[in-house]
């Protein structure tokens, strides 16, 4: 029983992190319908920048964290300006292949600089945040990640529903030429959405780094695990991303705990194929019906 509850708690918290990671991905998809294969690398980059600031430059956390977020925000702008802006109006498949290339480029660069070793952040979260509930132990990181996740979930929900910028983003995703002709500033929308997505990615990278340690390979494979999460939740639903993340996280920990540890990493992808078969637009995705 205790084992079950501990697995449940672990699954929930890991799943929440997946959801957090998936939010940045959905952000880009919602504004430009691009599948960003470089998401894990953006996460790893955020974590490494935080590591450098906190470990090498020895800045205090309250300074290093916002600085990292600023860096990620600027990085998102730069990536968009250098690599994605020239492709506005090109077929989507070019953009997606470009993100595959970017992923490989970033990963190679990070491996050259930091190597494939596992790094850990120095311990900085206060112990008081840890929740002890019977025999179940929730470390402080998870508590913090849940709070951060909920804040971002609410902000994004409000942003896309009510702010004019959010509505522009949805219009661009739906039909780029139509949005352009109606006077939506598509370039600005792209720049902003990449910047925000990089920021969210960097943040989830930091949180994941605190929990599992930072390793380029691990973080980039989590970046790919975003795909089952968003397919399950619905590609364009931010709330769905969180719920999909939690379901995938639970599935992973339960298979890891009861069936076999090697199956753990494949289960999300098996779920992905299954979901594509029975409910391709996910739990909360927008169902597109088109008759030709």
């Amino acid at each position: 029983m205790d084992f079950f509850i501990q697995l449940l708690v672990n699954g929930l918290s890991i799943g929440f992190l997946y959801g957090l990671a998936a939010m940045g991905f959905v952000m880009i998809f919602k504004s430009s319908s691009v599948l960003n294969f470089a998401h894990g690398e953006l996460m790893a980059l955020g974590a490494f920048v935080f590591l450098v600031l906190i470990g090498w430059a020895e800045l205090p956390v309250y300074l290093a964290f916002p600085l990292t977020l600023v860096f990620c925000f600027v990085l998102g702008f730069v990536v968009e300006r250098l690599f994605l802006r020239p492709l506005i109006g090109e077929p989507l498949i070019y953009v997606i292949m470009l993100t595959v290339g970017l992923a490989s480029m970033f990963k190679g660069a990070m491996l050259l600089i930091w190597g494939g070793n596992l790094y850990t952040f120095p311990d900085f979260l206060p112990e008081g945040l840890a929740i002890q509930w019977g025999s179940v132990n929730i470390p402080p990181v998870y508590a913090v990640s849940i709070v951060i996740g909920l804040i971002f979930l609410m902000l994004f929900g409000l942003f896309f529903k009510y702010s004019s910028q959010g509505i522009y983003m949805r219009s661009v995703a739906d039909n780029q030429p139509a949005a352009l002709s109606l006077g939506v500033h598509v370039r600005k929308v792209f720049a902003l959405s990449w910047a925000i997505a990089a920021l969210v990615a960097g943040m989830s990278g930091i949180v994941l780094g605190i929990i599992n340690g930072i390793n380029v390979h691990d973080l980039s494979s989590i970046g790919l695990k975003v795909f089952p999460v968003v397919i399950l939740g619905g590609l364009d639903s931010i709330g769905g991303a969180v719920i999909g993340g939690i379901i995938i996280g639970l599935l992973e920990t339960f298979t890891g705990g009861y069936l076999s540890t090697s199956l753990r990493d494949v289960v999300p992808y098996i779920v992905l194929v299954f979901i594509l078969m029975v409910k391709p637009y996910g739990l909360f995705g927008l169902v597109e019906i088109e008759r030709v």
């Binding site: 470009l98 970017l102 490989s104 190679g108 660069a109 491996l111």
Partner: peptide, 25 residues
């Protein structure tokens, strides 16, 4: 420094993909 083949390859392939898509699709 322990320079190894794998990351260099990854970097080169990624850069090649990105440059070709941008400059000569």
């Amino acid at each position: 420094i322990g320079l190894s083949m794998a990351p260099l390859r990854e970097l080169a392939f990624g850069t090649a993909i990105v440059l070709f898509i941008l400059l000569e699709p």
